[in-house]
Design a protein around this nucleic acid. Structure first.
Lengths: 345, 345
DNA sequence: TTGAAAGCGGTACCAG
DNA sequence: CTGGTACCGCTTTCAA
C-alpha cells in the first residue's frame, strides 16, 4: 500500500529532467544551471527522496584502501586490534573497502616516520595510526596528507596534527574511572598506589595519569599515588622493576596498570597473595584470565571492533567530505569485572 | 594490480553455466542437478567468490516489516528504546527494512495477546516483544508463528517459547555484577540491602535477583538481602513503599534497583543524605543525572541501539534461514559510573 | 534442469 | 548545460 521510496527516476520525471542531471545535482557536480538545480532540489524535497548508498556504491565501484599501523609490541591488545582488522576485512570487502595492517616498532617515532613516508598515495587512501606525539611524527603526517592521504589517530590522540581525527577513548576519563573504582575497592584507610605506564611519550598514558590523580586527590586523599613506572610493555623489565617497587614501598594497597601488555604484571602478582586491588587496561585473553582468577579486580577497556569500524567510517567520511559525528562515534570506556565479562570470542 | 573480487559472472563462466544457475546454487534454490551444484561450488571455492549482499538486496527488493512491542510504562529506558527504533528507521530504510513501534500495556499479558493476535501477517514479517512469561502469551506467540510471523524476545527472555530468539543481556550476570559492585562499595561491615524489582512475572528481574543473591551469599555474607519489593515502575507506589521499608529496616546500607523506571527511587533518595550505596539499571536522562549528583553510585545498563540492531539482524536471519551467532551478538552488560558516562545523545 | 534478458537504484561516459 | 545509455553484481521471470 505504502508507495516505495522514490528513486532518481521518480525525481527525474517529476522535475522533468534526465537521470544524469538529477545525479549531477544530488552529487553536487558542476555543469547544471542554477534554475535546474533548484527545480531538482524542489522535487527531491517534495518526493522525500533519499539516496540509496548501497546502490550508489555498487555503481560507483570505488575502492577504499586503508592501512592500519599497529605497534609490534607483544601485547594482547594490539593483537586483538589486528585480529579485528582482519575480521572486518571480509565484511568490508562487500563495502568496497580494503584494509591492510602494517606493524611498526613500538615507541619509536622513526619507525612511524619511515612507514608513513613509504606510503604510496596511489595504493593507499587513508591510514590509521598509533604513534607517539613527536615533532618528526607530526611532520611525516603533514607530508602524507600533502600527498592526499587521509590520516587518523588511533587509541592515542595526536591533537597537534590531527584535530578531530581521533578514534579511541577519552583517556582522562578512563583514568578517572580507574581511580574511582580503585579508591572504592581498597578497604584500607591509607596506603600507596602504584601506577604503571607504557611510555612517557604516549599521550594516552599521560592523560590517564592526569585523570587518575585528579580523582584520587579529590576523593581519596588518604592514598598516596607513587611516581609512574615506565614499563614499555617490556615483560623482562617489569620482572626487575616490580619487586624493587614493592620493596621500596611496603604499603602498596592498589595498582593501576595503564599499559597495554599485562604479562609481566600478571606473572609478578600471580605469586603473591595479599589484599592488593588491581585495575588494568584492555580485555585480552591474558587479562581475562587474570580477572577470572582474581589477580585483577577490574579492567578498563575499549572495544577493538568498534575502534576499527569507527576508524574506517572516519576515513571514509573524510575522503567523501561528509560530516562525521565524533561525539556519536565516541568509543565507550568499558568496565569489566569477573561477572560481566563478555563471552570469549 | 590485485584482481577485483570475483562476481557471479566469473563463477558462471568458470563453471560453464549461466548466471541463473549460479544464483540458484548460491541461494540454495531447487531445480539444479547435483553434478551442476558441485561444479558451481567448486568454482566458487576456487575463485574465492563471496556474495555481495548489497547488490543482492538491491536486486531482490524485498521489504522487511518489523514491529517492536514496547511497554507503555513511564520509563526512560523504554523511551530510549523507542527513540533508538525511530533512529534506526532512517538508516534501515536503505536496507529495505521498515520498523514500527506498538506500545502495549505494561505487565499485562492480555494486552500482549491482543496485540499479537491483531498482527497481520501480510503486513508484518517479524515482531520483537517485551512481555511477561505467561501461558496466554506463549499461546499467542505460537499463533503468530503459525501465521508465519517471526517472533523474538527483547530484554526479558521467553525461553519456553522462544529458545535462541532472545536479544538482551544475561540478567543473571547482571545481577551478579551489581552484587559484586555493591558489596565492594559498601564500607560498613554489616547491614541490610534493599532490592527493588518491577514485577514477579518479569523473568529478567527474577534472574537478576538470583545472580545477586548468589554473589552476595558467596562473597558478602555479612550483608543481609531483604525480600524484593515489587515496584511495577509505579512512582506513586514507591512513594509509600520506600519510607516504610526504611522505617522497618534501619540498617539499610545498599540498594539494588533492578526496575526500569527510577523516578520514584530518585525522588525518595534525593531527600536523604547518608552513606547509602545505590546501584540501579539502565542509562536514561534521569539516571544519568542521579549518577552525576551522586544519588546513584553505579548503573548497570544495556545499549538500546545495540539491542534494536541486533533484534533486526536476528529477525532477518531467521526469515532468511541463515545462521545467527547469538554469542557474538550478545548484548554487553555495561557498567557506568560518573566518570565513564558516555556523552549525552 | 538450464539459460537469456530485464531490471533494482545509481553512476559515468559520450554526444549533442 | 543536458540527455542517452551502458554498466555495477545480483535476482527473477519466462522460455527453451
Amino acid at each position: 500500500m505504502v508507495a516505495s521510496k522514490p528513486t532518481v527516476n521518480d525525481v527525474a520525471s517529476h522535475a522533468g529532467v534526465s537521470l544524469a542531471t538529477v545525479d549531477r545535482v544530488v552529487n553536487g557536480r558542476p555543469g547544471v544551471r542554477t534554475v535546474t538545480i533548484e527545480r531538482v532540489n524542489k522535487s527531491i524535497n517534495e518526493l522525500g527522496y533519499i539516496r540509496d548508498t548501497a546502490a550508489a556504491n555498487l555503481a560507483r565501484r570505488r575502492l577504499y584502501r586503508f592501512t592500519f599501523m599497529i605497534p609490534n609490541t607483544d601485547s594482547g591488545f594490539f593483537d586483538s586490534l589486528a585480529s579485528q582488522i582482519e575480521a572486518q576485512t571480509g565484511v568490508l570487502s562487500t563495502e568496497r573497502t580494503a584494509l591492510e595492517i602494517k606493524r611498526i616498532t613500538a615507541f619509536d617515532s622513526h619507525s612511524v616516520v619511515i612507514a608513513l613516508d613509504s606510503l604510496d598515495n596511489k595504493a593507499t587512501d587513508g591510514v590509521a595510526l598509533i604513534a607517539p606525539e613527536t615533532a618528526t611524527v607530526r611532520d611525516a603526517i603533514g607530508r602524507a596528507r600533502a600527498r592526499g592521504i587521509v590520516v587518523v589517530a588511533l587509541i592515542s590522540d595526536l591533537p597537534s596534527s590531527l584535530r578531530n581525527h581521533f578514534v579511541g577513548i577519552d583517556n582522562r576519563s578512563a583514568g578517572q574511572t580507574a581511580a574511582q573504582l580503585l579508591g572504592r575497592f581498597i578497604k584500607a584507610d591509607k596506603g600507596s598506589i602504584l601506577l604503571l605506564i607504557n611510555s612517557r611519550l604516549a599521550r594516552d598514558h599521560l592523560e590517564r595519569r592526569h585523570g587518575f590523580d585528579m580523582i584520587m586527590s579529590e576523593h581519596f586523599p588518604q592514598f598516596k599515588v607513587l611516581p609512574s613506572i615506565e614499563a614499555r610493555d617490556d615483560t623482562e623489565l617489569l620482572e626487575t622493576v616490580l619487586p624493587n617497587a614493592f620493596n621500596e614501598w611496603d604499603d602498596i594497597k592498589g595498582v593501576y596498570a595503564s599499559m597495554s601488555s599485562n604479562k609481566g604484571l600478571i606473572d609478578f602478582l600471580g605469586n603473591r597473595s595479599d589484599d592488593l586491588m588491581v585495575i588494568a587496561h584492555e580485555l585480552t585473553p591474558l587479562s581475562r584470565n587474570a580477572l577470572q582468577r582474581g589477580v585483577f579486580d577490574a579492567l578498563i577497556s575499549q572495544d577493538t571492533g568498534h575502534i576499527v569500524r569507527s576508524a574506517v567510517r572516519l576515513m571514509r567520511a573524510t575522503i567523501e567530505a561528509v560530516p562525521y559525528n565524533a561525539l556519536q562515534e565516541r568509543i565507550r570506556i568499558d568496565i569489566f569485572m569477573k561477572e560481566n565479562l563478555p563471552p570469549e570470542p
